[in-house]
């Protein structure tokens, strides 16, 4: 199937169970939003899918277009088409943005092929311009000393340069000012298309005014408790998580 499919995923860390029978399907071409209170397991889901080794997968499956990715190395999962825009991007001193993205691109080339530097920089600069990033950033160390918003833009720059089939964006909006939110959303919207699926994790409906989702999921205590159209985000914003707790959590 042409989708990112998560089925009955149970995940724990240090003996504490975090994801509880979590299931979600994101067909290519769709944008799904995932909302839910702090600590409910959204980032855990993102990192488990990306192959983070700290988490214990008890049971369940995650597939990209039918191919299993659970238990694979993070780079293998990336090659399979999953991109994770981190909630907290790491700072990598001494590794420039340009060299980093280039290494990531090079890793995707068949043996023996090399990157055309001129074309690479042309594309990189175009995408930076679109995200209103100063071209000087290419020479800066990856995320090193970047402001919160600069880090998030840099995540989206990487996402657009790596052209993944499935994008998981973990609170990309946090740290962005209003103008940046628009710019970044435009960048994401440009990437929308029938060949790509998105999971947009956010706390704020504001982002979803710019990146209008096909489906909104509400997560609570390690699983999705409610799903609905884009308007659900507004309802959630108005009513808060107590409403979720009262209306849906009992199904647990």
């Amino acid at each position: 199937m042409n989708a990112l499919e998560i089925k009955n995923l149970n995940v724990s860390i240090e003996g504490q169970s975090i994801l509880k029978d979590f299931s979600l399907t994101i067909p290519k071409g769709e944008v799904h939003a995932l909302m839910g209170p702090n600590g409910t397991g959204k980032s855990t889901l993102a990192k488990v899918m990306a192959g983070h080794e700290d988490y214990q997968v008890e049971s369940g499956t995650v597939t990209l277009d039918g191919e299993n990715i659970l238990g694979e190395e993070p780079d293998v999962i990336a090659h399979a088409g999953l991109f994770l825009a981190f909630q907290y991007p790491l700072e990598i001193p001494g590794v420039s943005i340009a060299n980093f993205i280039r290494a990531a691109r090079a890793a995707r080339l068949p043996n023996g092929e090399t990157i055309n530097a001129v074309e690479y920089y042309k594309e990189l600069y175009e995408k930076m311009d679109a995200l209103k990033m100063d071209r000087k950033f290419t020479a800066r160390s990856l995320n090193d000393g970047f402001s919160g918003g600069e880090k998030k833009r840099c995540e989206i720059l990487q996402m657009s340069m790596l052209d993944p089939a499935y994008c998981v964006m973990d609170e990309t909006d946090s740290g962005l000012d209003i103008d940046a939110l628009k710019t970044v959303s435009e960048g994401v919207n440009l990437m929308r298309g029938p060949e790509r699926g998105f999971l947009v994790i956010t706390h704020y409906q504001r982002l979803l005014d710019y990146i209008v989702p096909d489906v909104v999921h509400v997560m609570f205590d390690g699983r999705i408790v409610h799903s609905g159209p884009a308007e659900l985000a507004h309802e959630l914003e108005a009513k808060g998580y107590d409403w979720v707790k009262e209306s849906f959590a009992t199904t647990a």
């Binding site: 990192k47 990306a50 192959g51 780079d75 990336a78 991109f83 981190f86 790491l90 990598i92 290494a103």
Partner: peptide
């Protein structure tokens, strides 16, 4: 740093 390594590998760069 293991998390830095994870971050880089998530971009498709082998370990």
């Amino acid at each position: 740093d293991a998390d830095e390594l994870f971050y880089m590998m998530q971009r498709g760069i082998p370990r």
